[in-house]
Structures are given as structure tokens and as C-alpha cells.
């Protein structure tokens, strides 16, 4: 097995703020590593170091066998970067953007042009090729940005939150473009704050928070660590939610979480366990407005690892609730 990306002990501080605290990474050739974490976890800092935009304070890294610290120029020849902010020029057309990038990869006039047309076709941008990017939709800009990262057919592709802010349809479109690249043998390091995205695209996942690694493994490994499935019930009041949580806690395989009038409990044992839980709730005379059973998502993994969800806008943690309710569950 060849490691295409290898990093050891990457550390970066900004004054007193530790952005990265000793991150290790190993990505095999032709695989996708998902770097998962909330905003501010240090994902972009990792990508910036590996793409030679910044230097780490400590640690070493090689990309495609080349040391990022001693030979940054050689690394740049072998990588493509598609950032969180679409790195395309608004006032240039799609074609002009890609052509310029080709020239800057020193591909020569002819090859740059051919490659630009080729990529515009491949990303369904041929019709918009000669319009200024300013007139593009968000999804089109991201596709163009991804195309920009592919101009020199890089061995290694870094995608920093490639779908943040995209509508679901554009997101799925970008996913299939990425999958196609991986099928052709490109090694990808992808950062995301969407569990679904890591689940969908990544072979291996490293979960980071506050600059440190908190878990790693395949999506299935990580899900296994939080138990089999999830039962979710919704009850008529928040007071009843506490009661329901207490009932479910006796059957649950892990920590029970309350959110408003909903209770989520990890259980092992599939449908039988679901039946048991429903009987127990009925015996406790708790009315149920809604019941669901689902496989664990990476959101559950994140919640159990960090005590907060991955979505910063929906960061209701069990710690944030009144102590009484948490106590009530125990």
C-alpha cells in the first residue's frame, strides 16, 4: 500500500490559539479521506498546510511522496485545491478562468485551451463557457472551481468543504463528479461538516474538533461505536419527554438525548428492541405522537464523541439543558 498523504504531529498556533494540536493522517493511494468536524475545528488549517499555503509550527507531511516543507513547489505541481470559497474570478468567463490556470500550470497555450474546453464539457458548463462567472449560479461556480483544481490532472485533490452552501441538487451533482474522479484513481482529501457527505464519499474518516483528532475509522466503524440503531420518539410535552427518556434509558445501549419534545435513544437488537421499547412506553402511559427507528448517522457519532452536534446552527447539547433534565435521565 502506498500512502499518498502522510502527516505526523501537525501543529499550528495563532498566538495563544491552538488551531491544530498534533494531527496525524495517512491516506492510501486512490482512496478518499473525509476530514470531519464543525466550523473552527481546524479542517481548513490542515488543508492549508498540506497544500503549502501555510507552514505548520510542528510536524511533518508528505503529499505524493514529496515533503511539503522542503519542496513546496514540487507538491504544488502534483495537487489540485478546491477551496471553501470558490476560487474563481467573477469577471472572467469560465473558459478564461480555466485557461489562465492552465497557463499558470505552464501547460502552454494549446494544451491550456483544449483542457479548459474539455473540463467545461465534462462539468456541463459548455453553454456558459463564455459568460462571466458573475452570472453563474452557486452550483456552477463550485463546479468551475472543482474543474480549476483538475486542470493539471493532479494525483491528489484537496476539497475544502466543496458543497457548503449548495442546494441539495447541486450537492448531489458535485458528489457524482467527485466519485467519478476517485474511480479514475485520484486520491482525495475532503473536509466537510456534513456527516452525510463524509458517509457518502469517504473511505476513511477522521473526526477532528478543537484542533485535535477525536476519532478515526470507516463510516461503519464509527457508527458501530455508537451502537446499532436509534429509536426516536416525540411526545406531547417536554415534561413527558423526561419521563420517556427515563423509560428508554433502562433499555438503551448508550446515552439518551432529549431535544425539546423528542427523545433519541441508541438501542441494540433491531426491531425486537423497538417493540420492547414501545411496550415499555405504553406501560408507562406515555402518549407518542411520532415514533421512528433509524440506523445511526455520523451525526450520532459526532454527538456521542463531542457532546454537541456537527451543525453549529443546531448546537443543542445535553449539557445546555437544565441540569434537572439531565439528572432526570440518570
Amino acid at each position: 500500500m502506498t500512502l499518498t498523504i502522510e502527516a505526523r504531529g501537525l501543529t499550528k498556533r495563532y498566538g495563544d490559539v491552538v488551531a491544530l494540536n498534533g494531527i496525524d493522517l495517512a491516506v492510501e493511494e486512490g482512496t478518499v479521506l473525509g476530514l470531519l468536524g464543525p466550523n473552527g475545528a481546524g479542517k481548513t488549517t490542515v488543508v492549508s498546510i498540506l497544500t503549502t499555503l501555510i507552514e505548520p509550527d510542528e510536524g511533518t507531511a508528505t503529499v505524493a511522496g514529496v515533503d511539503v516543507l522542503t519542496s513546496p513547489g514540487d507538491v504544488r505541481r502534483r495537487i489540485g485545491l478546491s477551496g471553501q470559497y470558490a476560487a474563481v474570478d467573477e469577471h472572467l468567463t469560465g473558459f478564461e478562468n480555466l485557461d489562465m490556470i492552465g497557463r499558470l500550470y505552464r501547460m502552454g497555450r494549446r494544451r491550456s485551451r483544449d483542457r479548459a474546453r474539455d473540463l467545461l464539457d465534462r462539468f456541463s458548463l459548455a453553454d456558459a463557457a463564455d459568460r462571466p462567472v458573475r452570472t453563474y449560479s452557486g452550483g456552477m461556480r463550485r463546479r468551475l472551481d472543482l474543474a480549476g483544481a483538475l486542470v493539471a490532472e493532479p494525483q491528489v485533490l484537496f476539497l475544502d468543504e466543496p458543497t457548503t452552501g449548495l442546494d441539495p441538487r447541486s450537492r448531489v451533482g458535485l458528489w457524482s463528479a467527485i466519485e467519478e474522479l476517485v474511480a479514475r484513481g485520484t486520491t482525495v482529501l475532503l473536509t466537510t461538516q456534513y456527516m452525510e457527505e463524509a458517509d457518502h464519499l469517504a473511505d476513511d474518516i477522521v473526526v477532528i474538533d478543537h484542533g485535535g483528532q477525536i476519532a478515526r475509522g470507516t463510516a461503519d466503524d464509527l457508527k458501530a461505536t455508537v451502537g446499532g440503531g436509534r429509536i426516536e420518539v416525540t411526545v406531547p410535552s417536554e415534561a413527558l419527554a423526561v419521563d420517556a427518556a427515563r423509560v428508554l434509558d433502562t433499555l438503551s445501549a448508550g446515552d439518551v438525548h432529549i431535544e425539546g419534545r423528542s427523545v433519541t435513544a441508541p438501542i441494540s437488537g433491531g426491531a425486537d428492541a423497538l417493540g420492547e421499547a414501545l411496550v415499555a412506553l405504553k406501560e408507562a402511559e406515555i402518549d407518542l405522537q411520532d415514533v421512528g427507528f433509524r440506523r445511526p448517522t455520523l451525526d450520532d457519532v459526532f454527538l456521542s464523541l463531542t457532546g454537541h452536534t456537527s451543525d453549529p446552527t443546531n448546537d443543542t447539547t445535553i449539557e445546555d439543558r437544565p441540569a434537572r433534565m439531565v439528572e432526570g435521565v440518570r
Binding site: 497544500t51 504544488r76 474563481v88
Partner: peptide
């Protein structure tokens, strides 16, 4: 963002 692109190119 364009400057990140420039800085990542050889």
C-alpha cells in the same frame, strides 16, 4: 478566494 488558488499553483 482567487489568491488561495494562485498560492496553491506551481
Amino acid at each position: 478566494g482567487i489568491i488561495d488558488r494562485f498560492r496553491s499553483l506551481p
